[in-house]
Amino acid sequence: MITYHQIFLGSHCNNECVACPSREREKACELNALTAQIDQIDRLDGLADCQNVALTGGEPLLYNGLFPLVAHARHKGAKRIKLVTNGRRLADQGFLERLLEEGCRIFEVKVFGSTAHTHDAVTGVWGSFDETMQGLNNLADISNFQEYQDAVFVTASIGVTRTNMQDLAATMGLASTLGADRIVLARRGADFPIAEGARIVSNVLRTATLNRVWSMCEGFPPCLMQGCEAHMAELLQPRLYPGDKPVGCRTCACRDICGGPPEDYASEHGTEEFVPVPVARYLDDVTYLARILSTHAAA
């Protein structure tokens, strides 16, 4: 819903996640090149999405020029600076306090399990779980300080993989106990049956709602998420897809608001799991939302 201009700081990371999309990209970007990227953001001082900058990697907290970069973004008018991080360096409370002072208030922390066994199996680094949990704990603690009350926003981004699929409910529970403001369950990789993943994710989303935590999913199409459409990131930031569809999708009620079966999955497993939706009562409203978002993007 709140869109961020993404700044990729390089693929350097202290985790070794198998399904990481940035592993093959350049190691570290030059600070000058990154500040130039910020300078080039059109109308940084104007529309909402241009005031929002997300620093990604790799692991952005390992980037040497992080603080000068954040200072530059602030100087240029950025109001929301988000860090998409594995959270391990946040275990250092002094480092976290410095980040907050510099103006980083929005954190998207990647979590892969409720135990070290599961989390570290996905990250490929023994000990990463403890540091990430300490980081989340520090974020929760600091939010209790008067100065930062309601001034820090934390998303727990749970990557859904074959390894942690049976641990998702417990991971969500852990993240909500640690005070996450939002939980995102994002499909990572195509090595598990997507319909089975969707069933588990749907249950986790319902449980999160019972726990009064807002939760969303990414990478699962509406035909597999019936009853949980409100939680779909793709429908809350919808695009219109007027083009051709795979044969199986041509009769689907969602065909204009869905990109079809995820390509990475369909190329390996086919499209049999994807069944056309007969009726989508939210269709007009999602289409209207897409129009509002595109009107804004064009403004």
């Binding site: 709140i2 109001k79 929301r80 403001d181 939002r182 807002w214």
Partner: peptide
């Protein structure tokens, strides 16, 4: 059930919006 979800969603999103510097 939709109101409950809408409250969770919109309050969470508004919080993210309002932490602006």
């Amino acid at each position: 059930d939709e109101i409950f979800r809408a409250v969770l969603f919109s309050f969470s999103t508004a919080k993210e919006y309002n932490v602006a510097l």
